[in-house]
Amino acid sequence: MEKTDILTFAGREFRSRLIVGTGKYPDYRSMRRAHDASGAELVTVAVRRVNLDRTQESLLDYIDTKRYTLLPNTAGCYTAEEAIKTAFLAREVGLSDLVKLEVIGDQRTLFPDNEELLKATRVLVKEGFVVLPYTNDDPVMAKKLEDAGAAAVMPLGAPIGSGLGVRNPYNIKIILETARVPVIVDAGVGTASDAAIAMELGCDGVLMNTGIAGAKDPVAMAEAMRHAVLAGRLAYLAGRIPRKLYGTASSPLEGMIE
């Protein structure tokens, strides 16, 4: 399956359907080992002022950019203007023209501000960015983002860092029915089963950071997530049996011993 089942958006191809982050790891070494164990090919990074005190190590020393595609994010931005500015600076670094577009609307829930998100998506698409917007699990919004030129839509499963899993699988299903671009669940995944559920619904990928980085053993959790995404994807492609209220025997009724 891994050879033929490829995640594609904006003309790029990825064998892994798992996208991982770089935040909250105990240290860069365990982050690198977790990335390795996850099998991910896309890694999201924040865009921030460099530390002028050069004694600190640089994140980029721990990501092989030949092996991983960088996905800069606009985390921490609260307006379209801030997010657009951040995206332009990120592109200027010269390592990626992708952007995981986040415009946060509320500090406590970290829910997106969809009005600003849509505005920023329109501008950045026009400017030639590959825009992957982080949005609510709202099918109407997902459609609007797709129409605005988003390369994929990334509905949340639950609030960022909450580990609550996919809270509204029915909305995700509706998004999947209408979307013509890849649907990637972004945020909320707490453990392997959450990732598997997202994939079983038919999502094209899952993005997570805290679920791996915050685990007691991030490297082991990264491996668990790799298996979960693969298992969920396979189960989706295999086609699950319908849910039934009553039992159906799987052994023949004939030939019973008298």
Binding site: V20, G21, T22, G23, K24, Y25, Y28, M31, T44, V45, A46, V47, R48, R49, V50, L52, S58, L59, L60, L70, P72, N73, A75, G76, L89, A90, V93, L95, K100, E102, I104, L110, Y134, I160, G161, D186, A187, L207, M208, N209, T210, A213
Partner: peptide, 12 residues
Amino acid sequence: LEIISFMAGGAD
């Protein structure tokens, strides 16, 4: 001047 680069971060 603002000098920026890629730093650790996933979301939020």
